[in-house]
Each structure stands twice: as structure tokens, then as C-alpha cells.
Amino acid sequence: MVGPELERLIQVLSRLPGLGPRSARRAALHLIERKDVLMRPLAEALASAADSVRRCPVCGNFDSVEPCAICSDPRRDDGLLCVVADVGSLWAMERTGAYAGRYHVLGGLLSALDGVGPEDLGIARLVTRAAAAREVILATPATVEGQTTAHYIADRLAGTGVAVSGLAHGVPVGGELDYLDDGTISAALRARRSL
């Protein structure tokens, strides 16, 4: 029904997260219909990013400079090290504007089922970096793999003298109890604090 070039575009788009075959077809059609204002600039941006963006050798963030802009920012607090699973989590933390320390991107989470062990995540390098920090903040997801990874890292950092903390879990700002799942409510009860 479509030519090989368009079929290839649809196949490549369908590999993106959140895009299945139908969504990829709609996206491809949208790009083709707006070739000059969307497709060509997108192709140029993709080529430029492919040529210049790389992982920061210090923290694991993506940037076009080494070290990345966050690692080279002198206003950052060198004593705080926030451990995140992936670059998307780092970007989420940065969007808040509430954190001004350094980062360490693991590049995944421990998972016996997927064959991901500590050596795959560079946890030894994290332990080395943590020696220069006063606090390591474990900002891993509230999933089984995320909590397993956080506990493993906390165990590895035990006895080093560095404080280890984790993000609070519970009721989100603006959240109503009636709409929350049981796990979130339970976590909020366990993490309650005095007012």
C-alpha cells in the first residue's frame, strides 16, 4: 500500500517508546504532509544530535560538551550526589529546579530477570565518586527493581561515612486519597512526619 521509503519510516517510528504501528503511520503521514516545516528540520536536528551528543564521562548525562553543562557548573554543590536510573530521571529532577548538586546516572536498574548486575551499572564507579560527597541521594523509581538497586547501593555505601538518603514516597501534591492506589497510601503512612 505504501512505498519502501515510507514503510521504512513507519517501521523506524514504531520503535520509539509509546508509538505502535498505527501511531507510527499517523506520525509518518503528519511528517510527510508537513515536509518543509516539520520533516526536513527534524531530519537536520536528528543528524546534528547523532553527530554531537554523547554521554558525559563524569555523570552519564547526555550533552554535546565534555564534561556536561551540569558537571562543569561551578555553582553546583559538590557534596550532594543524586543517583538516578536514567537520563530521563535526571531531566525530571532538573525540571523542578529544587536540586543543585551533582548526578550519577546508572544507565538502568538491577534486574536478575534481565541479567543486569552491579557491574553493568558501574556501581563501583559510583562508590568511588561517593567518597567525595557528604550525602548520596538515591532517586531510583518506587518499583521492585528501583528499590532493589537503592538497597544494594546503600549496602555498598555503608561504612563509608557518607550519608545516604532516598526520595520520599507518598501522596503527591494536589493528590486526593480516593484516587490513589493502596501502595501509595501505605508508603505515605509509613513516611508520615510531624507538623
Rank of each mutant, 00 (worst) to 15 (best):
V2Y: 14
V2N: 12
P4N: 02
E7R: 15
R8Y: 12
I10V: 14
I10H: 03
Q11D: 15
V12D: 09
L13H: 02
S14V: 06
S14W: 12
L16Y: 07
L16N: 01
P17D: 14
G18M: 09
R22L: 15
S23C: 13
A24N: 05
L29P: 02
H30Y: 12
I32M: 14
I32Q: 10
E33F: 02
R34C: 02
K35Y: 06
D36R: 08
D36E: 15
M39P: 05
R40M: 02
A47M: 09
R55C: 12
R55Y: 14
P57E: 14
C59D: 03
C59R: 02
D63I: 03
S64M: 11
P74M: 11
R75C: 08
D77M: 00
G79Y: 11
L81E: 02
L81H: 02
V83H: 01
A85C: 04
V87T: 05
V87C: 04
G88K: 15
L90W: 03
R95G: 10
R95D: 11
T96F: 01
T96A: 07
T96C: 03
Y99T: 01
R102L: 04
H104K: 11
L109M: 07
A112D: 04
L113M: 10
L113F: 11
G115M: 00
E119T: 07
E119P: 01
L121S: 02
L121Y: 06
R125A: 13
V127F: 11
T128L: 15
R129F: 05
A131T: 09
A133I: 07
A133N: 04
R134W: 06
I137N: 00
T140C: 05
T143R: 05
E145P: 07
Q147F: 11
A150I: 03
I153Y: 06
L157I: 12
G159I: 08
T160A: 14
T160Y: 10
G161M: 08
A163L: 13
S165F: 10
L167N: 11
A168V: 09
H169E: 10
G170N: 09
V173L: 15
G174Q: 13
G175V: 08
E176S: 13
D178V: 11
S186Q: 10
S186R: 14
A187V: 04
A187G: 09
R190G: 06
A191K: 06
A191P: 04
S194H: 14
